[in-house]
Simulated assay, not measured.
Amino acid sequence: MKYIRKSHDRGGANFGWLNSKHSFSFGHYYDPKHMGVSVLRVINDDVVQPGRGFDTHGHRDMEIISYVIDGALEHKDSTGNIYTVPAGEVQRMSAGRGVMHSEYNASDKEAVNFLQIWIQPNVFGIEPSYEQKRIEQNGPLTPLVTSNGTDGSLSMNQDANLYRLMLEKQQQITLYVSTHTTNRVGYLHIVSGSLAANGTDFSAGDAFMVTADEVTEIVASSDVEALWFDLPAI
């Protein structure tokens, strides 16, 4: 493993209403050793207090994925979308040539915890678009957002795929990326639980990269929920 990102080493910001842990450089947090992996540029682990949120702000030319862990997120944008994203659902917004949006905790009683994920697109200046869906787990690895919307997943404008990994305690799986057609890298971010990867222990908030044709043997130390990114090597 050439790149390991431990939870306690992440950057972050705490504004009272928002407590955010940054896997990669973001906002006021900057570290040239942690600028992202391939086209994956942001994984922010955000906890937003009841009734609070991000006021209207703009994005362009970015694939923005929200993965709600606990609670519910209220989304509004300048294309007319108004949605609530509860835990278990996945949201993808393609900012394209520009979109304004806001994100708020949908509850005035409970905090919301979600992962804010940014992936650089492979097309620019397109019409903004939005998708949201509950995707039931089907086996250990289930596609959530893919390059072509395969197997009921959402789609994104990039040669990249995002899967949810779910394992029960002591369950095993082998993770690898193939270079049969093009070089790839993988990145595993643990949402909850703990596991051993090739004998190294990881827990919630930890992450690591898998390089081309590197085989990684995973053994769940407890029930595990994680996100597996299949990315182009750049």
Rank of each mutant, 00 (worst) to 15 (best):
H8A: 13
V185I: 02
D108N: 15
N157E: 12
G16N: 07
R92A: 12
V48L: 06
Y187M: 01
T216V: 09
P140V: 07
M1A: 14
A220I: 07
R134Q: 14
G152P: 09
Q120A: 13
K76T: 04
Y83R: 15
T84R: 07
E63Q: 08
D223G: 11
S153W: 04
V37C: 13
K169G: 12
N148D: 15
K33H: 10
T174Q: 13
G80Q: 08
A160P: 06
Y29H: 14
L18C: 08
A13I: 15
A226V: 02
V215W: 08
Y29Q: 11
N183K: 13
I69K: 13
F26W: 14
Q116F: 08
D61A: 04
G199L: 09
M93N: 08
T79I: 09
I82P: 04
T56N: 14
T56L: 12
T211W: 00
G139R: 02
E214H: 05
R5A: 14
N198F: 12
D223A: 12
Y3I: 06
A95R: 10
G186M: 04
T216F: 01
T216L: 05
F229M: 00
G98I: 03
A197E: 02
N161S: 09
L162H: 04
L162W: 02
Y30N: 11
V68M: 00
V42R: 02
I64S: 04
R184A: 11
T179S: 15
V224T: 03
D151R: 05
D70Q: 06
W228D: 06
Y130D: 03
S20I: 09
Q116M: 11
M100W: 10
L162N: 01
H57M: 09
A160G: 01
V112H: 01
I190M: 01
I69D: 13
G98P: 07
D45I: 03
L165D: 00
S78Q: 08
K6N: 11
L231M: 03
S192H: 13
T146V: 11
A233Y: 05
Q49G: 05
S23C: 12
E74R: 15
S94W: 02
T79E: 04
M93P: 05
N105F: 04
Q132K: 01
S25L: 07
S94Y: 00
S178Y: 13
R184G: 01
L115S: 08
H22Q: 14
F26G: 12
L167H: 06
S192M: 01
Q171N: 10
T200L: 14
N157Y: 11
